[in-house]
Design a protein around this nucleic acid. Structure first.
Length: 110
DNA sequence: GGATTGACGTCTG
DNA sequence: GCAGACGCCAATC
């Protein structure tokens, strides 16, 4: 079994998100060719079983913390993002486009 | 084993 | 430009 499960790939990509950056479900889904952004969200739902997965850095295309409700605390996600220097207003990332990080950037990380 | 749901995204009206 | 509906694919009930 050299190939990991698709959600394991989601964990890996999510872990690759730099500090102070955020990514979207669609970007990861597109990068992993999952075909559905929902798969990413569902996979991240299991991310709690896996440690070291900054699921709080993953938001929807609108930059909204749509998954905050699945966290131990609905404010934990925002607190974590603010702790990384990401401004969050009304559960929405400010300058989301500027904080946006694409998994493709991991290729030329260097 | 079928129907529903789900941390979303894109299209059409 | 905003709102509503549909599609994705897998897991859970």
């Amino acid at each position: 079994m050299s190939k990991k499960n698709y959600y394991q790939d989601v964990f890996e990509v999510t872990k690759l998100i730099p500090h102070g950056r955020v990514s979207t479900y669609g970007a990861i889904a597109n990068y992993l060719s999952l075909g559905s952004a929902r798969m990413v969200g569902w996979a991240l739902n299991k991310s709690f079983v896996e440690e070291g997965v900054p699921a709080h850095r993953v938001v929807n295309r609108k930059g909204e913390l749509s998954g905050r409700i699945h966290f131990p605390s609905p404010t934990m996600m925002q607190e974590l993002l603010e702790s990384e220097g990401i401004e969050v207003v009304d559960h929405v990332i400010r300058d989301f486009k500027a904080k946006y990080w694409s998994p493709s950037e991991a290729l030329g990380e260097d």
